[in-house]
């Protein structure tokens, strides 16, 4: 592997981690609300949230460009107000990875929250607990396995994102070239040994992440 490949692997891990943290921060309250407080229009929110799962990644990437591109409304706003340009920047790779991995976390988190028996939460309320305490002490511990599994799936998906990342962040060596893009380059250039090394690293990280998700959790797992 070249020095650029090591940079690509580190960038991939950083992008996947940042995307996963973003997805958990945004997805957890939405998943909780939809699971626990059903409302008219929840189905639409679920459909939009899970759309990146069924769309071709390049379509997701194109739509992100339409929203966050330098000529797009949101893109212009971010650039003018905060000087933030997502396109051809590592932050664009984070955005692309977050959007494509969001459904995997969201579906898992929603299902985990919905599986927590309402009766446990009501019992805690009857004992004088606030909604905040019910969430932290009952709902979250009882759904933590599903949340961790969803987070890991999202991380692995973010780590391997290709199409949407390429569309939004491009393939700039040392800046936006992730391991998945470096693997594509190695394959196109016929550098089999380099490609195999990247496959081994990406595969090992994915297997380690899945093993981590499957570990028993001492407190909280049912």
């Amino acid at each position: 592997m070249t020095a650029e490949d090591y940079t690509a692997i580190i960038l991939s891990l950083a992008v996947a981690l940042a995307a996963t943290i973003s997805v958990v921060c945004v997805g957890t309250p939405i998943a909780w609300y939809i699971a626990k407080k059903p409302f008219r229009g929840a189905g639409l929110v679920v459909a939009i949230s899970t759309l990146p799962l069924v769309l071709p990644p390049t379509v997701t990437g194109y739509l992100l460009l339409e929203i966050f591109g330098r000529r797009a409304l949101v893109g212009q706003f971010l650039e003018q107000q905060f000087g933030l340009v997502l396109v051809f920047h590592w932050s664009g790779a984070v955005l692309a990875a977050a959007v494509t991995s969001f459904p995997l976390y969201f579906v898992s988190a929603r299902s985990a929250f919905a599986s927590v028996d309402f009766a446990y939460e009501q019992a805690a309320r009857l004992m004088g607990c606030s909604e905040w305490t019910v969430f932290w002490r009952i709902t979250l511990p009882l759904s933590i396995r599903g949340l961790v599994a969803g987070g890991v799936l999202g991380f692995v998906r973010a780590l391997g994102d290709f199409g949407a990342t390429l569309m939004v962040a491009g393939n700039i060596p040392g800046r936006t070239r992730t391991a998945a893009l470096a693997l594509y380059d190695a394959t196109i250039l016929g550098e089999a040994a380099r490609a195999r090394s990247l496959v081994a690293v990406l595969g090992a990280v994915a297997v380690a992440a899945i093993w981590f998700a499957g570990r028993p959790i001492s407190k909280g797992g049912r």
């Binding site: 446990y120 009501q122 019992a123 009857l126 049912r222």
Partner: peptide, 20 residues
């Protein structure tokens, strides 16, 4: 009145002890 302020306790047939 929210449940937490009612001063009502309940003992359930299937106990509902928190499994975690």
């Amino acid at each position: 009145q929210p449940l937490r302020d009612r001063g009502v306790g309940m003992v359930f047939q299937d106990d509902l002890l928190f499994p975690h």
